[in-house]
């Protein structure tokens, strides 16, 4: 009950705070530089230059405090020891390069990077083009999209049941093992089978992200001018040729945006690994490694170093993604 009251109060304060800020600050600006009187023209010009900062100000401030400042702090921490007290130079970076678990994480992240965006985009594209041709396509779409509404942790729990293994003499409740047994095979402890367990973890994210890819790509496919497809029909192109030579090239920009958006997400993948294997059996990834060193190893130096590596990997893709998205006008 107390929490509910707090939450409500936060919402009310947040909304009214915003309204008060925007209304109040603009009112003050208009008082300070009135748009009338002898200097009306000059005042309007000056106010127009100040006003954008009134709107941008809070966002710039909050981004600065929560995004930019932590970056510099991370850089500083990565050059200090576990407690963040003693300057150690590049010791943390040297440790990182030599660390076996880090190499495993980088390799796994690379695998995730190759498999998940490719598979999600491909399945999304297939789902988008097939559902657009079905009478019950909208229903199929909502079913495929539904996993998007499930948190990563929730999805992991669901998939943990699918991969579940019960010991000798117990009934197998895991879907995969039930199927294997049904075909007369031996149940497996799927999540410990290196390196295949990585793929099983990836399946969770692919399952979630296919819906996202499908929705965006479906909109893009619908945006293709019908006449270009009719022209291709008249030119004698087969449905497959129309798909690969006329449709896909026309939505290439959107495919790239979907791909990179998922790529960025994949670089940050954490919850799924944490919930399903916690990085054991050769499934460690960078974000989970960072988490481990930060909260289990209590080493801010090493954790910050890993964090910076993730940021360095994400940044170029992010820049490219934003540029493409702008060009596409999405």
């Amino acid at each position: 009950m107390e929490q509910l009251a707090f939450a409500s109060a936060t919402i009310v304060i947040g909304i009214f705070g915003c309204v008060a800020w925007f209304w109040g600050s603009n009112w003050l600006l208009d008082r300070a530089l009135p748009p009338r009187g002898p200097h009306a023209g000059r005042n309007i010009g000056r106010a127009a230059r100040v006003r954008p900062w009134l709107f941008l100000g809070p966002a710039v401030l909050i981004l600065g405090v929560y995004l930019v400042w932590p970056v510099f702090l991370s850089i500083w921490l990565s050059l200090h020891d576990a407690a963040g007290q003693r300057f150690v130079g590049f010791d943390n970076w040297r440790w990182l390069i030599a660390d076996g678990k880090f190499r495993e994480s980088i390799l796994n992240n690379l695998m995730w990077l190759l498999v998940v965006p490719a598979a999600s985009t491909l399945f999304g594209l297939i789902a988008a083009s097939l559902t657009d041709r079905l009478r019950w396509g909208d229903l199929a779409k909502s079913l495929i999209f539904m996993p998007m509404a499930i948190s990563f942790i929730g999805a992991s729990v669901i998939w943990k049941f699918i991969y579940d293994f019960r010991g000798e003499g117990q009934a197998q409740i895991g879907l995969l093992n039930a199927v294997v047994e049904g075909f007369g095979g031996n149940p497996q402890t799927w999540l410990t089978l290196t390196p295949w367990n990585n793929l099983m973890l990836m399946a969770v994210l692919i399952w979630i992200q296919t819906g996202f890819a499908m929705v965006i790509l479906s909109a893009a496919l619908r945006g293709i001018p019908e006449e270009t497809i009719e022209a291709a029909v008249l030119d004698g192109a087969s449905p497959l040729q129309i798909f690969f030579k006329i449709k896909v090239p026309q939505i290439w920009g959107t495919i790239a945006v979907v791909w990179t958006t998922i790529t960025i997400l994949v670089l940050k993948v954490f919850d799924i690994v944490l919930a399903m294997t916690n990085g054991q059996w050769g499934t460690q990834v960078l974000a989970n490694l960072m988490f481990d060193w930060m909260f289990r190893g209590n080493d801010t130096g090493r954790a910050s170093t890993v964090a910076l590596v993730i940021m360095l990997l994400v940044t170029p893709i992010m820049i490219w993604n934003i540029r493409t998205a702008r060009r596409e006008g999405m």
């Binding site: 001018p225 006449e227 270009t228 009719e230 022209a231 008249l234 030119d235």
Partner: peptide, 15 residues
């Protein structure tokens, strides 16, 4: 494609 016709569209329909 096999009717021996070609069509010019109002919106050009260029690829």
């Amino acid at each position: 494609a096999q009717r021996g016709i070609a069509m010019v569209f109002q919106s050009y329909a260029l690829y």
